[in-house]
Computed example of a mutant assay.
Amino acid sequence: MNPLHVGDYADHAKATLAGDVLGYLDGGSGAEWTLRANTAAYQRIRLRPRVLVDVGTCDTSVDLLGSSLAAPLGVAPMAYHRLVHEDGELATVKAAGAAGALFVASIFASTDLAEMAAVATGPLWMQLYWLRDRPALLELVGRAERAGYRALVLTVDAPRVARRHRDLRSGFTLPPHVRAVNLSRELMAESHLAAAGVSAIERHSRERFDPTITWADLAWLRDRTRLPLVLKGILTAEDARLAAEHEVDAIVVSNHGGRQLDGVAATADVLAEVVAAIAGRLPVLVDGGVRTGADVLKALALGAAAVLVGRPVLWGLAHSGAAGAEHVLTLLREELAEAMALCGRPTTAQLDRSVLG
C-alpha cells in the first residue's frame, strides 16, 4: 500500500525497524506524558473556516532568516539518520531541498557536513549542543561556516540527556557502522560502549555536555561566528524575553519532542505565550507533535514563523529513503495548502488567531 498520510509511514516504521532503534526514535523521557501531549494538543485546537473567499491559488511560501521556503517547514535536527537508512542524512538533505524545506543538521549527524552541503538544494542550518570541549565546538562551527550553512541552532534544553526508559531497557548503544562523523572518535567513544540497563546516549551526554553554561556564554559564541544564532528549547515567556534581550536571531519553541523534562507543556500550548512575549522582535519556530498540514496551519495561526518536523521525516526515510522523506514533507505542504483553502486563507500571512476556534 502506498502511504497516504504520515500515520502510514509511522505504521511501517513500527513494523520494520529493529526494536532498540524504534525505541530510540519514537520514545520519550519519563512516563512519556509530554511525548503524548505534543500530538494531543494539536488535536484539541479547532478551526474557524471562512467561506466565499477566492482560494483559487494558495501560497504556502515563506521567507525565514533570508531564505525562501516553498512552505514553512523544516527538518528538525535529529542524530544518526543512518540508523534507519543506509543513505542517512544525504537522503534527507536531498528530500528537504526537493520539497522546498529547510534542513537542520544535527551535531551528531552520521554524514559529513561538507558532503551534506554538496547535495543540498535548499538552506542548511547547523545544530549544536554546548560541549565541554570548546575547541571541538568551535572547529565544528568553522566547518559549518565554510560549507555554507546559514545559521547555528543551539539546543538549550539539554544540559544532559534525560532518562528514557525505552533506551534503558534496550541498553541502547550505537552500532559500529553508525557514528557522529563530524566529531572525533575519542569525543564520541562513550556512545559506542554497551552496558546492560544503560543508555549509551545518556551516559555520553553526562560526560561531554557542559551543564554550566548560562545566558552570559552566548556572547562568547556570538563573538566567534558570523552566522545567525537560533536558540532551540524555549518554553516560557521569561526565557523568550531573555533571548530577545541577548539579541539572538530566532528561537524554537521545543520540548525536545518529549525527550527531555517529562511533564512540561505541549509546545502548541505554550506557543502563543512565547509569541506574545517576543512581540515581533524575532521569528519564533516550533516543533513537536506536528503530524498533518492542518497542524502546521494551527501553529502558524498561533504565531509561528515555521514548523520543524522530526520523527515523521525519519519514518519516511526508513520507508523508502529520500523518496519517502520527501513525500512526508510534500504531504505536509499539500495538506497545509488544502487546509488554507478550506479555511478561506489563501496566504500564510493571513493565518492568525482568527482562524482558531
Rank of each mutant, 00 (worst) to 15 (best):
L17Q: 07
G142N: 14
G27T: 00
R241V: 13
R226G: 15
G288F: 08
L154A: 09
L25P: 10
A70N: 11
L285W: 05
L174Q: 07
D210I: 05
A114K: 13
H319E: 10
V53D: 03
I201Q: 13
R185N: 14
V275C: 09
H81L: 08
L138E: 15
E247K: 13
G280D: 04
S170C: 12
L218M: 07
E273M: 06
L282K: 05
V6P: 12
V6Y: 03
P175M: 03
R206L: 13
L83R: 00
D217L: 07
P3K: 02
K14F: 13
A240E: 04
R333L: 07
V270Q: 08
L183D: 02
A76G: 08
A219Y: 02
G289S: 05
E186D: 15
S29T: 01
A294G: 14
L331P: 08
T212Q: 11
V51S: 10
L64E: 06
D223L: 09
E207T: 15
S106M: 01
A339N: 00
R166W: 09
E338G: 15
L336W: 01
R291I: 04
R82D: 09
Q350K: 04
V6Q: 09
A70W: 05
T212C: 08
N255T: 13
D11F: 11
L69C: 08
V156N: 00
V161N: 10
M116V: 04
D287G: 06
G357F: 11
A37Y: 05
V270D: 06
G74D: 10
R36W: 11
V153S: 08
V104F: 08
A196N: 11
R44L: 08
P346F: 03
G148I: 04
R164T: 05
A114R: 15
V51R: 09
G344E: 03
G293V: 02
V84G: 08
E245M: 11
Q43P: 05
L138N: 10
T57H: 15
R44S: 10
R179I: 03
G122T: 06
A105T: 13
R143W: 01
L25F: 08
R345A: 09
D112N: 12
A158R: 09
L83P: 09
G171I: 03
G23S: 12
V264G: 15
S106L: 04
S199L: 07
L154R: 00
T347A: 02
V290Y: 06
G27Y: 00
S184A: 04
R281E: 11
Q350L: 15
S29Y: 07
A294E: 12
A79S: 14
H327I: 07
H246Y: 12
D217A: 11
V253L: 07
F209H: 04
V51D: 01
M1V: 12
S110K: 02
L69D: 05
A120N: 05
L64P: 08
A323M: 09
A120T: 00
L47Q: 00
R143Q: 11
V286R: 00
V270P: 14
A276H: 12
T212R: 12
W33F: 15
P312R: 02
E145Q: 14
V93P: 08
R50Q: 12
D20S: 15
G288C: 08
A304S: 10
A301W: 00
A13D: 04
L193Q: 14
V55I: 07
A15E: 14
V284S: 02
A301P: 05
V253H: 07
L140C: 09
G280E: 02
